[in-house]
Amino acid sequence: MSDKHTTLALEKLDKSNFGFWVYLMTDLLLFGTLFATYAVLHTATAGGPSAKEIFELPGILAETLILLASSFTVGMALLAAQQRNHRHAAMWLMVTFALGASFLALELHEFKMLVADGHSWRTSAFLSSFFTLVGTHGAHITAGLIWLAVCTWRVMKQGITDNMLRRLTILSLFWHFLDIVWIFIFTYVYLLGAAS
């Protein structure tokens, strides 16, 4: 392992890291506009149910803790990958995938129950903005799960190469970012919605 190669590899890692970071910042702005829309419309119930009437907080707390745990496990996967321990890395990635999939299942169940009770996105401006905001987060989670599955498979197949380590670094950034967005959905949409 010559020094020149190490320097080049580190430079490449830095670049891909920064490029992905810029994407995350623009994604943050996307969520910011959806939050602003929700903040304006959350009282516009048009005769439909209010936030207080439809949110089931215990289920939401479970979702939150599951996502938080998955944010921790993806960090563990990255640490194992940095040590070139591909077995541990794959194991933590699978745990992250399982937690992420549980989160998504709980969220879809919540959406299904709301729609079954007649509280779909067509009911009011409040519910339109709610489904758009939370649904956009869910879509990101879905994309993240596909990405996690592909990475897990490749880690098992070819171990931790430099390319793989770069991918895992930005994947972990993406997954932490989704948990950060969820903090604000949990606080402003669910907790304050249920308390209002």
């Binding site: 190490t6 890692l13 921790f72 940095q82 040590q83 931790i160 190469t161 430099d162």
Partner: peptide
């Protein structure tokens, strides 16, 4: 199958682990 990225030392690894916890 390039593997040129340096492996963090044991101390760095522990530091990062503590940060995550």
């Amino acid at each position: 199958m390039e593997r040129h990225l340096p492996t963090p030392s044991k101390a760095e690894h522990t530091k990062h682990l503590h940060q995550y916890i």
